[in-house]
């Protein structure tokens, strides 16, 4: 549970997202979402397929802009930010973990983790040292020089988490990170998230289809048809 004095890092107010599919049709996916996430909070978003979880997550991650509504991320008005500023936000403040890993093909685990630091303009030695450290943290120290296509799903996801942590962002966004993994591997990944939350104090927004995993977080938001249908506390206390 967020402490009383902690800051709000994510503030969504009345977010509406519409997609234009063909000229006359407008598809409204999110119908006015209000959500606040405090610093250091571990939040999960659940809901049935097509309810708009990923759409919401993309807006939170500054990958997409809402059609209507306001979004303040750590003091920055995302809705009014230019492309360049959005890149900077994604680079510095947010770490993404995708269901499909999205590692850069033909690149080693090490250069994948170095990538966000490369775009941040960090020197080669520093990049290298930090990437090694992160890969060791997720238990991939042995396979740093392996190409991404030589890794198993669970291994790829661990590399992806290390990559999300590269620029030490305050927020980690994970869209079904265990969705493509068996439950045992999913458990390993989930434990890494717990560690990031507990030891590194990261704010984590976590989309999942698994009610058990959702229960492990501090707060569970249920989306239904583009609206927040339910909000409840999870089992995790701090």
């Amino acid at each position: 549970m967020p402490k009383k004095d902690s800051n709000t890092v994510i503030q969504l107010s009345h977010i509406v997202k519409r997609f234009f599919v063909g000229k006359p049709n407008e598809l409204e996916i999110l119908h006015g979402i209000d959500l606040e996430v405090k610093e250091g909070e571990f939040l999960s978003i659940v809901g049935e397929s097509g309810s708009g979880k990923s759409t919401l997550m993309n807006i939170i991650g500054a990958l997409d802009k809402p059609t209507e509504g306001g979004y303040i991320l750590d003091g920055t008005d995302v809705c009014r930010a230019k492309d360049k500023k959005l890149s900077e936000i994604r680079n510095q403040k947010i770490g993404f973990v995708f269901q499909t890993y999205n590692l850069v093909a033909r690149s080693t685990a090490l250069s994948n983790v170095e990538l966000p630091m490369l775009y941040a303009g960090i020197s080669k030695q520093e990049r290298h040292a930090r990437a090694k450290e992160l890969l060791e943290m997720v238990g991939m120290g042995e396979r740093m020089t392996h190409k991404s296509d030589e890794l198993s799903g669970g291994q790829k996801q661990r590399v992806a988490i290390a990559r999300a942590m590269a620029n030490n962002p305050s927020i980690i966004l994970a869209d079904e990170p265990t969705g493509s993994l068996d439950s045992k591997t999913g458990r390993v990944i989930m434990d890494i998230f717990h560690r990031l939350h507990h030891e590194e104090g990261k704010t984590i927004v976590f989309i999942t289809h698994s009610p058990e995993l959702a229960k492990e977080t501090q707060r569970i938001v249920t989306l239904s048809d583009g609206m927040i249908a339910d909000e409840r506390k999870g089992d995790r206390v701090c």
Partner: peptide, 16 residues
């Protein structure tokens, strides 16, 4: 295309 999307998600600017 997906690689480009990934790079952008990781903070690559259009110019990069």
């Amino acid at each position: 295309t997906r690689e480009i999307g990934t790079r952008k998600a990781l903070g690559a600017k259009n110019s990069s």
